[in-house]
Design a protein around this nucleic acid. Structure first.
Lengths: 121, 121
DNA sequence: CATCTATGTTGACATACATCGAACTAAATC
DNA sequence: GATTTAGTTCGATGTATGTCAACATAGATG
């Protein structure tokens, strides 16, 4: 559910092509703000474990019940997954009883490019 | 100031080859702790601008006086540079009046590999 | 040595954030 | 419709953190 009607085919779908590689030049304040937000989403150990659990899932997605064993309470897991979603790193979908999370495509490559200056493909 | 006596030659000196790519498997708690610390160092806008200023310096290094124009006070700049140093992302050296910062080699490639699974070289 | 400039350290303060328990919603099942 | 299971939202709380002013240190220079 989003603005998928009027716009013909201008859906970027990518969250990351926001900012130049860190090695290119000094980031502007706005660029730094956006880039820092993505790093911040991965700056918590619990969030990082949740993210890697989803990112490494063979099927490309994982339900919350499969990744909840990270040593914190249920509400805290939910809180962190929400943060990752807000940062544009994860997407979620409810199917019946369970809610499935998957990594937003191009996020990993995009952030990698931020660091290395030029990524794979 | 650390455990630098007993251990013979196990000094890694590299901060990054610590953890597997996020897509490989769910990180352990310890791996997540170390990895998150690096992302956290880049999770602040001011720190990110300082880092990119150093990382994009043509000579490979920059003195504090050249990168201090990030909208915060001197002490705050110092504070953030210290954090980046503690995280192993920057190194500093005093030469005469000025202090020069440079990016710790292999940091960018290492973090990139963390995200993309396989990096340049 | 006095002084000026370039950085760093300390202490204080306000805000952000991770965490949990309790209460809530959604779907399945009895 | 009552109950159970999966997940989220809310409110409270303790801790971490970004920020600055004041003070301290390091070199250079008069």
């Amino acid at each position: 559910m989003s603005n998928r009607r009027t716009l013909p085919e201008l859906e970027p779908d990518v969250v990351v092509p926001c900012c130049p590689p860190l090695t290119e030049r000094t980031l502007t304040a706005a660029e730094a703000e956006r880039t820092a937000a993505m790093f911040k989403a991965l700056s918590d150990p619990v969030r990082l474990r949740l993210f890697s659990a989803v990112a490494s899932a063979p099927s490309g997605e994982a339900c919350v019940c499969d990744i909840s064993d990270v040593g914190v309470s249920g509400p805290t897991v939910s809180h962190h997954l929400k943060k990752l979603k807000e940062a544009g790193l994860l997407a979620s979908e409810r199917r019946g009883t369970w809610v499935y999370y998957r990594v937003e495509p191009s996020v990993l490559a995009g952030m990698g490019r931020l660091l290395t200056g030029a990524g794979p493909a």
